[in-house]
Design a protein around this nucleic acid. Structure first.
Lengths: 231, 231
DNA sequence: CGCCTCTTTGAGCTCAATCAAGGTGTGTGG
DNA sequence: CCACACACCTTGATTGAGCTCAAAGAGGCG
């Protein structure tokens, strides 16, 4: 792998404190792959030969339901690992499809590297654990809102995405995200999500052009989240 | 740790293929702890000094919502590990409460053993990965039903619990589970769950006495799950 | 016997789903 | 350059599954 690529990887929290040589080892036979908007990285049901680490951009993990709708199980943002847990199982298949949202760069690493190198590298496993832990946390947070009104769910999703993506100074979601995707991730219909977000647009809480969502009044969104009252 | 205890542990899939000495190592400074019904193993917010492996019985992982209700995030059954992911983080706190459902035996292991032994033991980490993977799968399955009628969610929960608990010959859920708990796990109200399950009782699909739920017609429950039609 | 936990049933209401229609912007090929 | 497809957003009217509220029965236990 090229020097410049390695340098790029070294900024990921996953490889924090590692020398370029060590990163080269961990990324053995891996490659940086650039995905275009809506390009499929992994298809649910396919045999899992590799896993990936998000370097830039965002991915959605999608599960389709028997009833024909899609459910977005998780949004992967930079430094997230996808499909890592599958690597230690023989003959496993991807349980969800992984699709790029906007242009996106991932480091794709073959299963054998995982089993040869990663499994024996305690520090990197620890980092992977952090990632998985965060993912559980995210899912739990979401689950805790089942009973809450839809507006809370949407607000939480937007806040969480913005926090994970950008530092905390940024106010524009750096990946294109449609209302349909928001709906699929919170378990609602497009129409309902639109009604809520249109309201917020009118109130000047957020603004969207194309599929760039800009949050103007983060404080108000957070207010909606804590408020027991109305949306 | 006593010989007999070790033998008991050796039947867990987590320790499959391990010698008693190896298990003794992995369980260093750990202890088998017997919990009574509703006893709290870990309380959300407490500092995490240990993790646990379920040996017998069942536990619920509960998160309480700002709105005052509880959400059951996961049911842990024998061979499941809880709080393992927290061990590698310094000064972490339990993100959910862990409470026994019925009498329950767990192997409680201090964080230091995890960091001294488990982290460097590839086979056991692999097993832990399998457990985590199954847990993600379970949560994804559940999330895939957001749009489905409540009866589907309840049916899925019951089927899943029965499958995980007992082999496949058993028809009685071996842990006491209340309608409230089912409601909290699928994100509904007790009343709604009761209406659905009472219906099923009348139809002879299941039977409950005390808090023992016996499933008489598993086929019908599975039918409800696949059926696009009514409950 | 009073207290507790759990289950049950009924009546009314509400939030979000569904259905239906139309609008906008972009790409593309005749 | 027009027409047509496609992907996404928007709005309105109607409806129903499940929530809320209220009240009560059933078993266990100190």
């Amino acid at each position: 792998m090229h020097q410049e690529e390695l340098t790029r990887l070294s900024s990921l929290s996953l490889f924090e404190g590692r020398s370029l040589e060590q990163i080269d080892q961990l990324a053995q036979d891996g490659k940086l792959r650039v995905l275009r908007h809506r390009e499929v990285l992994y298809r649910a049901g396919d045999e899992a030969h590799s896993f990936a680490v998000v370097v830039e951009g965002a991915l959605k993990l999608v599960k389709s339901t028997p009833a024909g709708n899609d459910v977005i199980v998780f949004f992967a943002t930079p430094a997230d690992a996808v499909a890592a847990l599958l690597m230690s199982k023989e003959k496993s298949v991807y349980p969800v499809s992984v699709i790029a949202m906007g242009d996106c760069t991932v480091l794709e690493i073959p299963r054998r590297t995982y089993n040869a190198i990663w499994v024996h590298d305690a520090p990197v496993l620890q980092k992977v654990n952090h990632i998985l832990f965060a993912r559980f946390g995210e899912m739990h947070e979401q689950k805790a809102l089942v009973k809450a009104p839809l507006s809370h769910k949407v607000a939480r999703q937007l806040v969480s995405l913005l926090e994970r993506f950008a530092g905390n100074s940024e106010t524009i979601l750096p990946a294109p995200i449609t209302r349909q995707e928001i709906a699929d991730s919170v378990g609602a219909t497009v129409e309902s999500v639109i009604r809520i977000m249109s309201d917020w647009s009118r109130q000047g809480i957020l603004k969207t052009s194309d599929q760039q969502i800009e949050i103007l009044r983060m404080d108000k969104l957070i207010g909606i989240l804590k408020d027991e009252s109305k949306a």
